[in-house]
Design a protein around this nucleic acid. Structure first.
Lengths: 203, 203
DNA sequence: CAACTTCTGTACCGACAGGTACGCTAGTGG
DNA sequence: CCACTAGCGTACCTGTCGGTACAGAAGTTG
């Protein structure tokens, strides 16, 4: 708590931390937590293991920081979606965002929070648990948003907001898997069309 | 091609191949292809590495055999679902089956064909590709089934059968992820209720 | 019982995993 | 220019990975 240091002491870092983290995020995204070796990571980041450990702690902490960067960046559509004025708009923004992020042109498909560490072996338990927590929290926040919508009369009477939220999240989870299976943005957007066509209260 | 050998020559195998494969399948299911080490696998199978290699070839071939056992067993609901008389019944059977298999009481949640190897690092590419192929084929078969349904007048005019199949598969992919995130059978079945409530032509 | 065939257990292989020790280098402050 | 600080590069650590060599054990056939 002694205030921020404004003069740099010692040899300055030879790389951009944020850039390096971005590269690490992509490797985790493509290869998963277990599949991303330190050699893969530091190779993509353009730094040595020593520098990585000095700057980020260890592989697990690097993953957590990459995950935060992911949720603030590519997965930022989720927070934006919750701010939409109506429940229907929230759902559509969420699903369109999921489609977009799952099919970025850079070559890797799917969603880090799903394919990062879906199965749980002993050594990747922390990463796995972090992703489970993140996904569960996302579901909870959408439930809360839809509960608010129900209170505001934004959903037809008799609609269970929690159930609806879980249904929408099911699509939000399925879309990245579809993307990882080879489906393109156009087909995925059609899926969203299909889902939105039978939104409660419409038609 | 010299006919089946009916007399056993040499020392008989000291374990049941099918039982061992069942155990291996569960380890792959829980921990994924990369997360399942030979030590984990052979430990669960109750045999030594040597026996495993003699009986199954190597880790990759063991995975392929475990995958086939999975698709014939726990994922057998898929084939059964396609035999349902109507498109609606096909979809519902498929989703209910996905829920059931994703929430078996034995403790591991989710679906092997999804969490087995969703991300692709270099060394698990074969396993990853096998699962991609399997999922893509599942989508294609459902598309074909719905195309037939459309021809039979089993779907309302104007319904795109391929699109509908991809939509249903999205839910079928999302349900296991939900299960791996902690949702139970009851909540997942509610999601299926929600999805079936707005099936094209109903209500 | 001996010959033959196959499975099993141990002990081991090279490669690579995550992680670290340590001397060197590039800067700042006196 | 010298002390000090912190990042960098190399070389290395232990453990584990998938996979195998080889000798002994357990059966069948003569």
């Amino acid at each position: 708590m002694g205030g921020t240091r404004n003069t740099v002491i010692g040899r300055p870092r030879g790389f951009d931390t944020e850039e390096a983290l971005e590269c690490a995020m992509r490797v985790f995204w493509e290869q998963g937590y277990e599949g991303a070796s330190l050699t893969d990571l530091t190779g993509a980041m353009g730094i040595t293991k020593t520098s990585m450990y000095a700057a980020f702690g260890n592989k697990e902490q690097l993953f957590h920081k990459a995950l935060r960067r992911y949720t603030d960046g590519p997965a930022g559509y989720f927070d934006d979606a919750l701010d939409q004025p109506t429940a229907r708009a929230v759902a559509e923004a969420l699903l369109r965002g999921s489609v977009r992020t799952s099919t970025l042109p850079e070559g890797f498909a799917g969603c880090l929070t799903i394919q990062g560490a879906l199965p749980a072996s002993d050594e990747n338990r922390p990463a796995h648990d972090a992703l489970v927590r993140f996904r569960a929290e996302a579901v909870a926040r959408l439930e809360q948003r839809f509960r608010r919508a129900a209170d505001e009369g934004d959903l037809p009477g008799g609609t269970d907001p929690e159930r609806l939220a879980r249904y929408v999240m099911t699509l939000g989870f399925g879309i990245p898997v579809h993307a990882a299976t080879g489906l393109g943005r156009a087909e995925l957007d059609e899926i969203v069309d299909q889902a939105m066509a039978c939104w409660p209260g419409s038609a």
